[in-house]
């Protein structure tokens, strides 16, 4: 009789103890914060939530890629600058050269895959520290982005040979990606994010390759000995991360209506923060896309709440730091 009374409580306690439960607690805390400091009720309107889902989408896509790499025990510091390189190349192809999106998008994804492939090869086959390999790629891709763009933003103002400018239309694909559906309520980029998350989730949770990534992150040597194709699986993680970053780059370009070679500064850190707040272990072997999804919402809402309340920049940075630590502390496995 006693046990039957305690069962629901125990069920809650157990679920709170799981990583997903703890990630939800962190999200809930941020939402409560939004409910308390609600900017004269603005937080209870639809607008901020809609805006948050749009803004968090591009961060979320990057974080999905980062999750794959982090589960192998690696890290990808190049996500920000590869994003800039893809955004610049995609804008160049669609705006300046007026190529069809059906041609430009696969090429842009290929650029992302190539960058990921190089990082992956350096990290997996040549056994460089992922930190070093992707640090090199981060610098390299930023340089390429500046080189390809000539240091200027690639926008709808196209420079003629004589130095004057002519203005072209924003390509249809930019408008399509930056539009909203379902009665103006859901951004297309949010849908793209959800699609990316679903695909990565299937790969990670339902596919052999995903299992192999967990095995590598858990114990690389053991994985190798039990017949996991370590080099191949690991390289592929960086390649897929590169492709996802390329998707994020295309979305970024579409939302800015231009390719900015300086875009994505510091984005690698946001991506890592999202993954870690979700509860994926930085040492590899544990975590998942579901957690990253929750992490995306946590960081997205935090950002939005601070912005709607017009908190000055200094206060924002301080608060974000504190809240990240608090969120990660609630993640920590401990004895009650």
């Amino acid at each position: 009789m006693n046990t039957s009374e305690r069962t629901p409580l125990r069920a809650i306690a157990t679920s709170l103890g799981s990583p997903a439960g703890r990630a939800l607690v962190a999200l809930l805390l941020v939402l409560v914060l939004g409910g308390v400091v609600n900017a004269e009720g603005a937080c209870f309107k639809l607008g901020p939530h809609r805006g948050m889902l749009r803004q968090a989408a591009v961060c979320g896509i990057r974080a999905c890629g980062m999750t794959l790499v982090i589960i192998t025990g690696g890290i990808d510091l190049a996500v920000g600058s590869v994003l800039a390189l893809v955004a610049v190349s995609f804008s160049l192809m669609t705006i300046h050269w007026a190529w069809s999106a059906w041609l430009a998008a696969p090429l842009a994804l290929a650029i992302g895959a190539a960058c990921g492939g190089v990082s992956g090869t350096l990290a997996a086959r040549l056994r460089l520290q992922p930190f070093i390999a992707t640090l090199a790629m981060m610098v390299f891709a930023r340089g390429m982005a500046k080189w390809v763009s000539g240091g200027q933003k690639i926008s709808t103002a196209v420079q003629n040979a004589d130095g004057t400018y002519r203005y072209v239309d924003v390509p249809g694909v930019f408008r399509a990606i930056d539009s909203r559906i379902f009665g103006d309520n859901l951004s297309v980029v949010t849908l793209i994010f959800l699609a990316c998350a679903a695909l990565t989730w299937i790969a990670l949770a339902r596919h052999r390759w995903g299992r192999e990534l967990y095995a590598i992150g858990g114990n690389e040597e053991a994985a190798r000995l039990s017949g996991v194709p370590v080099v191949w699986a690991k390289t592929l993680a960086y390649v897929v991360c590169g492709v996802l970053v390329a998707v994020a780059g295309i979305c970024q370009a579409a939302q800015e209506q231009q390719g900015d070679p300086e875009a994505g500064m510091g984005y690698e850190l946001t991506a890592i923060a999202i993954v870690v707040i979700g509860g994926t272990n930085l040492m590899g072997g544990r975590g998942g896309i579901g957690l990253t999804l929750i992490g995306t919402l946590t960081i997205g809402y935090l950002d939005k709440i601070l912005s709607v309340n017009a908190v000055p920049e200094a206060g924002r940075l301080v608060l974000t730091g504190i809240i990240i630590v608090a969120a990660v502390l609630t993640q920590k496995r401990r004895r009650w």
């Binding site: 900017a39 004269e40 603005a42 309107k45 607008g47 901020p48 805006g51 749009r54 803004q55 970024q252 939302q255 800015e256 231009q258 900015d260 875009a263 950002d303 939005k304 912005s307 709607v308 017009a310 000055p312 920049e313």
Partner: peptide
């Protein structure tokens, strides 16, 4: 009525303006 630091960056400006519009 609303001021925010967008750090000279276009994506940040769009984000802050989103908030201002919602509020």
């Amino acid at each position: 009525i609303f001021e925010a630091d967008m750090k000279w960056l276009e994506p940040d400006a769009r984000k802050e303006m989103d908030s201002a519009l919602a509020r």
